[in-house]
Simulated assay, not measured.
Amino acid sequence: MEPKIETGPVRPEVQLKPVPKKGLKWKSILTYSAFVGPALVFFLVIQIIPFLMGLYYSFTSWNGVSSAVEWVGFDNYIRIFTDDQVFFQSFMFTTKFMFAAVVISNVIGFGFALLLNAALKTRNILRTVFFLPNVIGGLLLGFIWQFIFVKGFASLGNATDLSLFKMPWLGDEKTAFWGIVIVFAWQISGYMMVIYVAALQGVDTSLLEAAKIDGASNWTLLTRIIVPLILPAFTICFFLTISMAFKIFDLNISLTGGGPFNSTQSVAINIYQEAFQNNRYGLGTAKSILFFVIVAVFTTVQVMITKRKEVQA
């Protein structure tokens, strides 16, 4: 017979006391508030509250100075659509400028990215050189290029006798338009290049090597593999360039000031003149609200289209 083993009394399992959920909840709330709170307060004070005040003033005839604020309803908006040819002209210029600037800036930025993604010894130096114009402020950059267009091109024209340098770059409507596009693209292409370079570095090189073994050409690699894989970068770059081109102000005012004869006046300059020079703050804010809606529609449609392309790719 096997000996019996006596065991002691069974001890109850030790149960850990749960930490009160209320304490954890308040701790997490305080932690989130400490990090998000200051940014949220600044966002409300700098963005939301001024936007709501501007929305209110767009329905008034306030001149921006006096304490009397007269409610006029939709009169400012009706006036924009029926009796403001200058605003319509500035909007057409800004839209045309946006399309040209977006295409040229992204083509140059993507071209720089492809160049610098190759095994070049000087690619780090070239990245700095290409990105450097984006660091220079818009007003300063505009005045530098104004000197180049007026003085520098005139000197080159006299020395080389080329008609390209003898053109009135900032004195004629057509050449002034392309002058602003050139300066904008020169400034912003380096910023787009950084985004495209980051996207290109995330492409799996094994896919490219396999495609080369199968006989794919460089153009096929670019259009069938590289571009579809970096479509999110195109979405970001298109969004940024569209919003920047629509809101152009500093380059425009330093290069041409909207001239000659308001032919190169952007919407931002028109709003600025209406509110702060003509002292029609109510009408100026109505234009800014309308402009905000237009830019929001353009950028939203662009993001929706490019996001759909990403899914298809």
Rank of each mutant, 00 (worst) to 15 (best):
G171D: 05
W219L: 14
T299L: 03
I78G: 09
Y57D: 00
G73E: 09
W178E: 07
F298D: 04
F110D: 02
F130I: 12
W145F: 15
T285E: 14
I78M: 13
I236E: 04
T128S: 14
G138F: 03
V311P: 00
A154P: 01
V10M: 13
Y191R: 00
I253N: 12
I226W: 11
Q47R: 10
W71V: 11
G157C: 10
P168K: 09
L207G: 04
I148G: 05
F99H: 07
T82W: 07
G37N: 02
L16W: 07
W186D: 03
T256F: 12
G179S: 15
M53W: 11
V19D: 11
Y57N: 05
K166Q: 14
K17A: 12
D250F: 10
Q15I: 15
F147R: 12
K174T: 13
E6W: 00
L132D: 03
A185S: 13
W186A: 11
Y281P: 04
L44Y: 08
F292G: 05
K151W: 12
L231Y: 04
I195D: 10
G171Y: 01
W71S: 09
N279E: 10
P18F: 10
S243K: 13
D204L: 09
K25V: 10
L222S: 05
L162F: 13
G179F: 08
I46G: 00
I108E: 04
N158D: 13
F291I: 02
V45I: 15
I180D: 05
R11I: 11
A159W: 15
L290W: 01
G142T: 02
L156S: 09
F130P: 00
K4S: 09
N117F: 09
T128P: 03
G171T: 04
I144M: 15
M192R: 02
R79Q: 14
M193K: 08
K22E: 13
L55V: 04
V267I: 15
K4T: 14
S263P: 00
T285A: 11
P12Y: 07
K22C: 03
I182F: 15
L221D: 02
V183D: 02
Y196G: 08
A211G: 09
T220W: 07
N218H: 10
E274G: 03
I148E: 07
I180K: 01
E70S: 08
P20C: 06
N278C: 01
L44C: 14
W26K: 10
G215N: 08
M304L: 13
L132K: 00
V103G: 06
R308V: 06
L170T: 05
G64P: 03
L52Q: 03
I195M: 13
A313P: 06
V197G: 05
F177Y: 12
T264A: 09
A296T: 06
T95V: 15
A68V: 05
F149K: 06
P38F: 04
A245T: 08
D214S: 13
L141R: 02
V72L: 09
A275S: 15
M53K: 12
V311D: 10
I46V: 13
R308P: 03
V183Y: 02
T60K: 06
L116T: 04
G190H: 07
S163E: 14
N278V: 04
V102A: 14
E310D: 07
G152H: 09
T31W: 14
N270P: 00
F131D: 01
F130T: 03
A118M: 10
I182C: 01
T94P: 10
T160G: 11
S90W: 08
Q47Y: 12
N270I: 01
Q273P: 00
F298G: 00
P38N: 01
T60W: 03
I182W: 04
